[in-house]
């Protein structure tokens, strides 16, 4: 056993050095993957933008930029609203449904009234179904881009200016836009 103690010792040192490098590499992987977990958040948004997963629409204003109006096609756009828990507003579309030609700009409005005895800041969160259509629904101006403060008892008519992209896949003829209204007074103050 003692004859090759030296070589055994150097072997052992080698092993320890190897261990350290391997551990360091693996710890880097761990850190990278922890970061990747968070990176998935923006990646998911990119992924949704590309695929229209979950019907997320862009939350910044688009500019009206179309190659023309396709009057041979008519697309039905439906509006629905829903209040999340705990926001005592009356909130509804003024019209439920509108027919548009792709490329044609339209303005519709939504009515909101704060029924509570205190001031509330609301935030409407849009969602489009079918999800694939979200990329073809362009909002030029929308109340959902900003927070909506309403004093107790006051009401407002809020505008939505939009157009449907001329490239909208031909198998989509109905588009539903839903707004969910949240009370964000606490977060905004």
């Amino acid at each position: 056993m003692s004859s090759d103690t030296n070589s055994a010792k150097s072997n052992k040192n080698n092993t320890l050095a190897n261990n350290n490098t391997t551990v360091k590499k693996l710890l880097l992987v761990v850190l990278a993957m922890f970061g990747f977990g968070f990176l998935l958040v923006p990646l998911y948004d990119v992924f949704c933008d590309i695929t229209g997963l979950n019907g997320k629409t862009s939350n910044t204003a688009a500019s009206y930029n179309t190659t023309g109006i396709d009057s041979s096609r008519t697309v039905k756009v439906q509006f629905i609203t829903r209040n999340a828990k705990g926001i005592p507003w009356q909130f509804e579309p003024v019209i439920n449904e509108i027919n548009v030609h792709p490329g044609e700009m339209k303005v519709v409005s939504f009515y909101a009234k704060n029924n509570a005895s205190y001031d509330i800041t609301g935030q409407a969160v849009p969602s489009v179904s079918p999800g694939l259509a979200a990329n073809y629904f362009h909002k030029i101006e929308c109340f959902c881009f900003t927070q909506q403060p309403l004093t107790a008892g006051s009401d407002v008519e809020m505008g939505l200016q939009f157009y449907v992209d001329i490239e909208l896949p031909s198998d989509i003829n109905t588009l539903t836009l839903s707004y969910t209204l949240y009370d964000i007074s606490e977060k905004s103050s």
Binding site: M33, F34, G35, Q123
Partner: peptide, 25 residues
């Protein structure tokens, strides 16, 4: 496992520190 740690961290900050990773509002 680090991805799990990441998502648990997001849940904790969403619950206690007001982030909105998973909150539509």
């Amino acid at each position: 496992m680090p991805v799990l740690a990441g998502v648990v961290t997001m849940i904790l900050t969403d619950t206690y520190f007001g982030t909105s990773f998973f909150d539509a509002a």
